[in-house]
């Protein structure tokens, strides 16, 4: 076995536990694994941003609440750090599709922890525009959604706009809604995306879904930026 990120050989340690239980395949070496930073400790109850004090909402979410948002809350797995930036840029922009495997286990675990109490769950990955999909070859949100053991629906469609990551905060917050409904859903929805930065994209998507009859809209993102 070799580490999927650094290609270092992974030597499985032998203990009674690993000897007696079924063999588990590791994709990352210990060194690389340590470079990821999980979200732990107190967070904003709406957007999962790490912050001081338990059970509070952050300043940005206060502003969202004032607009009567359609999105209930966001759950993320990782914090953004320089290592994550490297991995994401190779995965998304270079197009090294297989790197999604790095996240499989943690995504599954975190998703089940957060949403297993909800019934009739449908997962909706944030779509890419036709042009962007052509360019990239795959949709990173769909890759994350495929790790989750719930039915996935391409309920919305995106019209081509400038990349969010190329815009300033102000431009992002005032941008028009790029989503259109394709298949209206009646049940509870968990939107899936790779990163939550200002939350603008996810709130736009939630709005469209809610208007077409969704019961509740939550969000699940890989990274809280």
């Amino acid at each position: 076995m070799h580490c999927l990120w650094c290609d270092q050989k992974i030597l499985p340690e032998v203990t009674w536990l690993t000897f007696l239980t079924p063999h588990k395949i590791k994709v990352l070496c210990e060194e690389c694994k340590e470079k990821f930073s999980f979200i732990v400790g107190p967070v904003c109850i709406r957007c999962n941003r790490p912050m001081e004090g338990k059970g509070k909402t952050c300043y940005d979410c206060e502003r969202w609440i004032a607009q009567n948002p359609s999105l209930e809350c966001n759950i993320s797995v990782f914090e953004y750090n320089s290592f994550m930036q490297e991995v994401i840029s190779k995965w998304k922009y270079r197009g090294d599709y297989v790197l999604a495997e790095l996240f499989r286990e943690d995504v599954q675990q975190r998703f089940d922890e957060a949403f297993s109490h909800l019934n009739n769950l449908v997962v909706v990955p944030i779509p890419l525009s036709e042009e962007r999909l052509q360019e990239r070859g795959f949709n990173q949100a769909e890759a994350i959604a495929s790790f989750v053991n719930y039915p996935s629906e391409n309920a919305i469609k995106r019209i081509h706009t400038e990349k969010q990551s190329k815009k300033s905060r102000k431009e992002r917050m005032t941008s028009t809604n790029p989503f259109q409904i394709q298949k209206p859903q009646r049940s509870t929805i968990v939107l899936i995306d790779d990163i939550y930065t200002t939350g603008r994209t996810l709130h736009h998507a939630a709005e469209v879904l809610k208007l077409s009859g969704a019961q509740e809209v939550h969000a699940f993102t890989l990274i809280r930026g």
Binding site: G95, D96, Y97, V98, G137, F138
Partner: peptide, 15 residues
């Protein structure tokens, strides 16, 4: 590694 592709089948790309 494999990659879902437009052509419907899974394509293989060089890492």
């Amino acid at each position: 590694a494999g990659l879902p592709c437009d052509c419907g089948e899974e394509c293989v790309y060089c890492r």
